[in-house]
Design a protein around this nucleic acid. Structure first.
Length: 96
DNA sequence: TAGATGACTCACA
DNA sequence: ATGTGAGCCATCT
């Protein structure tokens, strides 16, 4: 299960983000967004998985990003050309 | 080993 | 528009 989450995360193209719901849907259960969040949270191999590309259904960034917090996550997204406003991204443009 | 919790989301009152 | 309840899976206590 988590393997699928990581796999999908790796397929996320540069400059794009995905929502928990989206991942849950791809992984199999649309209602498993919560589980997805947990999987990514406890992800030790986050250097191989762009978990900073994962945002809430409204484009809001994660509350506790393992790589240094929500601010670090914002920086990372901006580094990919993603416009982050008030810790939120435009899913209309960057959502997959 | 079993029960509770959590980086979430959606539906209904 | 705001608030509550349900459903998933991995980890923690």
């Amino acid at each position: 299960m988590k393997e699928k989450v990581f796999a999908f995360l790796k397929t996320v193209p540069y400059g794009k983000v995905v929502t928990y719901g989206r991942i849950a849907e791809v992984v199999g259960n649309k209602k498993a967004a919560r589980a997805v969040g947990n999987i990514i949270h406890t992800n030790r191999d986050f250097f191989g998985v762009p978990c900073y590309k994962v945002v809430s259904s409204k484009g809001k960034l994660s509350a506790s990003y393992a790589g240094g917090g929500i601010e670090a996550q914002k920086e990372r997204l901006e580094s990919e050309g993603i416009e982050v406003i008030a810790y939120k991204v435009d899913l209309k443009k960057y959502g997959s």
